[in-house]
Design a protein around this nucleic acid. Sequence first.
DNA 1: GAATCCTGATGACCCAGATCAATCTTCCTG
DNA 2: CAGGAAGATTGATCTGGGTCATCAGGATTC
Lengths: 248, 248
Amino acid sequence: MGEPIFTREQGSYSPSCNQCSLSSVCLPVAVSHGDLHRLESLVSQGKILDRGELVFRQCDPFKSCFAVQGGAIKTYFVSEDGEKQVTGFYLPGEVIALDSVSTENYSCSAEALERSSLCEIPLNHLEELAARIPGFQQHLLQLMSREIQNSQQMSILLSRKTAEERLATFLLSLSTRFRRRRLSPTHFRLPMARHDIANFLGLAVETVSRVFSRFQKQELVRFYGRNCTLVDINGLADIAHKHTPMCE
Amino acid sequence: MGEPIFTREQGSYSPSCNQCSLSSVCLPVAVSHGDLHRLESLVSQGKILDRGELVFRQCDPFKSCFAVQGGAIKTYFVSEDGEKQVTGFYLPGEVIALDSVSTENYSCSAEALERSSLCEIPLNHLEELAARIPGFQQHLLQLMSREIQNSQQMSILLSRKTAEERLATFLLSLSTRFRRRRLSPTHFRLPMARHDIANFLGLAVETVSRVFSRFQKQELVRFYGRNCTLVDINGLADIAHKHTPMCE
DNA sequence: GAATCCTGATGACCCAGATCAATCTTCCTG
DNA sequence: CAGGAAGATTGATCTGGGTCATCAGGATTC
């Protein structure tokens, strides 16, 4: 399975898709090595952003989607009356800006919550990518379909769940996503401020603090600042899994 | 611009995509007549459902998306604890089940709110459709991207808007969608019950009634049962357009 | 090391909207 | 067309979580 270029044996650290730990996430499963090469020629890896820097700004002309390689990104938009609304948090292996594929401009801003690296996938000329890489567009459809389902889950959370249910769901969602990355699902650091969590979940910061305190008293979680240890995952799941659709 | 098949001159009433009033919605703009023919061979039009009948059931194996041709459809799922959650209303020209493209099974059920006709678009073999009809997959991506944005708008509505803002937004959304169908944007019949509206918007039925009554007293709307006349669209827009993202 | 800022925790109070209850209206169905 | 059920309206009451206010660490700057 020797690769013609960018092999580790050559000591090259040039970014390449086959070396990228996310290839199974952002690429269709069955991409031939030739296709991989073509992909690499289109995608630009290794964009590094410091905490607070923007990946793109709301209303900028839409050019690319971005796969998060390391770090954490939050997306948010500002409404007419100047209010911020956080629309999502993105961890390594997740793709940003899928919601803007249909529009001329990005529908939200994306900001690094900590030092992050991103892989830029130019989708303004999507036809080209799709023509070159068979199965790519279909894979994209699946990513987007999942994004719709996520977003609908979010609607349910916001319309039916109590503050406790929302926060239990939130912590478990992070846990699952860390596990997917083969990191500890029970001991992790929250990359975002309480303020962002509150905004995202449609709560006041004070409520987040209070519920987290309550969770600690109930021996469900343990916090040291932003470091978080899930003590009783089943307990959290009992709280979170009300109002969750069956069969998936 | 004579059509080779299914022309009106022949007096044929066989369903065909080029005669369908929705062709601009569910088809990419630039489909050649040959492609049109191919599409018709894949799509099955004219499925008729009576009020209360299901298009598909949550957890059924995913086969197709459906374009609404006439009538109105609501989608909902039932959660583990037996609670229903309405996830959307679909009017003619809108496509159902895009959220299930990534999954084996439908993630929700779809039910006719009144006698409705649907066009079935089999997406379980999406590759085939896409291969035969250039531009189709890309069009699908756009539909899905719009669906994500819709769903995010919904999240904002649910997390930030008051009952009055939600209902004003809801009425205006219907108005816009009726206008798109070249029906009156100010005088229409609500195809769904107050109960469904409440559930969809994350409110209690009583709140919907009360707010509608208040809107009537303020001369914003006029109701005769489910018949609805928007008296002061600007007034409604003033209420609705808080917390709406800029620039789109 | 003092001053300032930012994040987070906790207490006191209040309100939008849920819940409960009663009545009225509309729509089926036989 | 009667009678029953579901849908819609309105009033009275209750409460989860928002708002306001205060305080306590950290972190950053000079």
